[in-house]
Design a protein around this nucleic acid. Structure first.
Lengths: 231, 231
DNA sequence: CCAAAAGTGTTTCCTGTACACCCATGG
DNA sequence: CCATGGGTGTACAGGAAACACTTTTGG
C-alpha cells in the first residue's frame, strides 16, 4: 500500500475463495466436497469455491458460493474468513491466491447437489484432495475446534430448535470424546446467553423427553467449554 | 479452484502485504507506521507494506518488507498471517487485495528508518491512518492480545535475555492493567518450557537483582495467562 | 416392569487470587 | 538503614470432575 510502484504495472493475480463447509452428523464431523469435473486434477475431491468478481467483496463471494453449493442462507449459518493461501505453484495454470473461508452449518435435510457430497473428516485421505486443499481443510478443522472452545458457535451446527444432547453431540463429534451429560448441561445453562429455553420438550426413542432450546445472544464463552487436555 | 472459468479470462487483482509491526516499550504497546510519500493519502500514516512479486510466496513477501523497514531478522521475531482485506474500493487506484500480517518484535536499539516511527497504540487517532489501515491495525492488536493469552509469544517482545519483570510488563502493556508480580512469577515458572533460566542475575536501580531467562521451547499455554475478565 | 435418556444433588479436589512476609540491593 | 523491587509462603473461595440418585418416557 505504501509502495512506490506505478499502479499501471503491478503483477496480476487471480483471486478465489475456497470454502471449508463443516457440519455435524453425530458422531462425525463432516465436510462438503465437490468432485472436479475438469482438468487439472479432474475427478479428485476439492473444496467448493471460485473466482472473486472484479467488484465483489470477499465475504460476498464466499457467501454466494455457499448458497450455490448448499442452498443454505447465511443467516442460518456461520461464515468467517479463515486464511489465505498463495503458494506460487499451488495452481499449475496461473498465480492464484485463495482466500479460504470457514462455514459451520446444520446438516441440510434437502438432497445434495450433483457432484457434491459430505465426507467424514476423520476418515479422509489427504492425498485424495486436489491442490493444497488438504492443508486448507486442516486449517478449517483446527479453527472450528478452537472456535467451539471459547464461543457459542456450536449452536450453528444445530437445527434452529435443539436439545442439549444435540448440542453435546457437536462437541463430542469435534473432539471424538464423550462428555459427561450432567456436567455439560450445568455448564451450558450456567452460561448467560448461550441457549434460551423454549417451553417445549421433544422425545426421540426411549428415555425422558428433553427440553428444547434456541441459540442465545451471547457469542463468547468464559471460561471455555472443553477441558485444556483435549487436543 | 473448482471453477469452470477459462483460465485465460479471470479478473486481474493486485495483491499486497501490509504489516502490523508491534512492540512493547513499557508501559505502552506500540506500532510501526510509515508516512506516505506519495498520493493518494500523501502525508498520512500507513502500515508498511508493498506488492507481492509474481512468483513470491506471501510469507516471503511479508518477511522481506519486515527486514526492509526494521532490519529485524525473522528468526528473532514472530511473523504470522493476520487477515485479508479486499473491499473493492479500499484503494482508489485499482482493485487491491491485501494480505495483512502481524509481527511481534523486541524494540530495536538501532535508529529508525527515514519516515518510519513508533506510535503508541492507545493514543492513536484512527482517522489519521490511510486507507483501511485503522481496521487492519485493530485486527492486529486483537490478534496479538489473544495470542499472548494462550501462547508463549510474549517472549518475542523481549530481548533475547530478559527478567520476569520485563515479561510481565509485556502483558501489562497489552492490557493496560497491573498484574500481581508474585502470582505472575509462579505461573510462568510452573509452565513447562515457557522460560528457561540462565544462571545469571541482572540489576537495574534499587531492589533485589532479578534472575534472567531465555525463551523456552513450548509454544502453547494451558491454561491461559490472563484472567477471563480482561477484555 | 425394565432399559434408557434427562436432569439434579453432592462430594472431592484443584487452582486462581489476595496478601503477608522475607530477601537483596542501591543510595 | 531505608526504600524498592525480587521472590516465597499461605489461606481462602470458586469451579471442574466424578458419580450417586431421581424423573420420565418407550417398549
Amino acid at each position: 500500500m505504501s509502495s512506490t510502484y506505478d499502479p499501471a504495472d503491478f503483477p496480476a493475480f487471480a483471486v478465489t475463495v475456497d470454502l471449508v463447509v463443516l457440519t455435524v452428523r453425530p458422531p462425525n464431523l463432516e465436510v462438503l466436497l465437490v468432485r472436479r469435473a475438469e482438468a487439472p486434477q479432474k475427478g479428485r475431491w476439492a473444496l467448493p469455491g471460485g473466482f472473486v468478481g472484479p467488484s465483489q467483496d470477499l465475504a460476498d463471494a464466499a457467501e454466494s458460493k455457499l448458497v450455490d453449493k448448499t442452498g443454505i442462507r447465511v443467516k442460518q449459518a456461520h461464515l468467517e474468513q479463515l486464511q489465505t493461501f498463495g503458494q506460487p505453484k499451488r495452481d499449475p495454470r496461473m498465480r492464484v491466491v485463495s482466500v479460504a473461508h470457514l462455514a459451520m452449518v446444520a446438516v441440510p435435510s434437502e438432497p445434495e447437489l450433483e457432484g457434491a457430497a459430505w465426507h467424514t473428516v476423520g476418515s479422509l485421505d489427504a492425498a485424495a484432495l486436489a491442490f493444497d486443499h488438504a492443508e486448507i481443510l486442516q486449517a478449517g478443522v483446527e479453527r472450528a475446534r478452537s472456535k467451539l472452545e471459547y464461543t457459542t458457535l456450536a449452536t450453528s451446527f444445530c437445527r434452529s430448535e435443539f436439545t442439549l444432547a444435540e448440542l453435546r453431540s457437536v462437541y463430542e463429534a469435534a473432539w471424538g470424546e464423550r462428555l459427561d451429560a450432567a456436567n455439560f448441561q450445568r455448564k451450558v445453562l450456567a452460561t448467560e446467553g448461550f441457549v434460551e429455553s423454549t417451553g417445549r420438550t421433544e422425545s426421540a426413542g426411549p428415555g425422558r423427553p428433553a427440553r428444547t432450546f434456541v441459540a442465545g445472544r451471547a457469542e463468547l464463552l468464559h471460561p471455555p467449554l472443553m477441558p485444556p487436555g483435549a487436543l
